[in-house]
């Protein structure tokens, strides 16, 4: 992979066991393996090469732990993320009800203008669905996010959330600012921001 290609940083967030890792694994490696599923500790990292409008890009995907407790660790990963994918489980109403909170997280820690995408996962569980599609749509609309329902098991709608989010990012000039892109690699360490970064992010936390 060429390190010259522009990178796009996406973050997956959402409550524990909502299917973030499964979604990512299906999208990046086309694997669906519940036998070996584990809870994510801290943050997982994946890269995928994508082509946007004919130009190669590298997607840096950060998959975060869902347990509330880990937010102190994961919050630093929001920095410089251009997109946030929020995942809930359509068969678990609690997970849907927590999404307001997760949108709040995204707004608190991510840069303003970050592209958001709401994903209802596990739609293959037809019998145990407890969140209607319309509810998801309404919530997404409220927060200005795109919305998809998908199933990592059946592959239904797996690519769409990523593709749409990337497209929207690329179409948003301030998110693709080369000055920001150049520094994007340095986004993992917990280290103090530069004044310029703070000015750019407009976030006081």
């Amino acid at each position: 992979m060429s390190s010259q290609d522009p990178t796009i940083k996406l973050l997956l967030i959402g409550p524990s066991n909502s299917g973030k890792t499964a979604l990512l694994l299906r999208y990046v490696d086309d694997i669906f393996d519940t036998d070996n599923a584990t809870a994510t500790i801290g943050v997982d990292f994946k890269v995928k090469k994508v082509s946007v409008k004919g130009k190669p890009h590298r997607l840096l995907l950060f998959d975060t732990a869902g347990q509330e407790r880990f937010r102190t660790l994961t919050s630093s990963y929001y920095r410089n993320a251009q997109g946030v994918i929020l995942v809930y489980d359509v068969s678990n109403r609690e997970s849907f009800l927590s999404m307001g909170h997760w949108f709040g997280e995204a707004e608190t820690y991510a840069s303003p203008g970050v592209i958001k995408c709401l994903v209802g996962s596990k739609i293959d569980r037809v019998g145990s669905r407890t969140v209607k599609r319309e509810e998801g749509e309404a919530l997404a609309k409220k927060y200005g996010a795109t919305f998809y329902e998908c199933s990592s098991k059946t592959r239904q709608n797996i690519r769409e959330p990523f593709v749409t989010t990337v497209d929207r990012i690329v179409d948003t000039p301030q998110l693709m600012d080369p000055a920001l892109l150049g520094r994007r690699d340095g986004t993992v360490a917990l280290r103090p921001r530069t004044d310029e970064e703070i000015a750019n992010s407009g976030c006081s936390c």
């Binding site: 801290g42 660790l73 690699d185 340095g186 360490a189």
Partner: peptide
Amino acid sequence: LGIGPTAYGTRWYLT
């Protein structure tokens, strides 16, 4: 590279 130990050490130490 800006990679701090929390990026990799979290799971090493917690598990």
